[in-house]
Amino acid sequence: MSNLDKRATDELHARTDKHLQVLKDQIWEELEQELFSEDPLIRSRVKKLKKKNYAISLIITVAAGLLIALSLQTDTGTAFVKEIKEIFVPEKQIIQNIEGTDEETEVQLNEGKDSEYIIYVDETRYELTNGKNSDVISTIIPLPEKYPEVTMEIRQVADEKPEDLVNTIEAALKKDFPELREVEEVTEPVIGFNLHGAAGNEAESKIVNAYVISNGQEGSFVITQYYFLEAAEGHGARFHRMLETFKIVK
């Protein structure tokens, strides 16, 4: 081990030594309550604390809903939707971090199936194809055959709420991705449920990253990204940034 390596090891140990035992005891105490307490009220405490973090976004959603409802009382629905669409500029620049480097990219406004949502697409690399049941964003230049597919599919399920639909999606994805992570609630790039899985640790191993989100009514949008391990910080990062611009307009 070189002098630099030894110093790095020593300093990392020294700087992470503080309060170690206190933290260890505190964490165990909370684990004991969360996992082994016979009192269900105590066991649900951690979950309640986590839900508190989502309170702000929930308030914003409710406020936005009220604003739309109030506006619809004075304008016709169609005119309002048109106004909303006009708010979105046809083209804008975003900065995205690709493989550790900030990159300035021009993205173009695209409409989803039946104009139910908008999304900004990096049209130098990808194209959005409106399909009968779903829309698919794929690479303009096809990838060599040895690589798995690289796509982002956006599909609406009008009659099933995310909390009901997510289990069906999870079961379906587990067939190809047995090591699918536990469903996670996320607030980025969209607010909803996230399912993520890798079919191996090789450069070309398939990755799935799916989101199940509310369509603002009684249904859901399912957004499924497919890429491969080596492309996680390329196509994966670009899909993430594109999805941040996803907005429901109807």
Partner: peptide, 28 residues
């Protein structure tokens, strides 16, 4: 636990965040 706390402290650079990360990891 010990190395999990050290690693989480170094990655998050924040004691409370490290504590939450380690706790959630063991729950999972």
């Amino acid at each position: 636990a010990e190395y999990a706390i050290r690693t989480a402290s170094a990655i998050t650079r924040n004691r409370e965040m490290a504590k939450d990360a380690v706790q959630e990891t063991f729950i999972r």
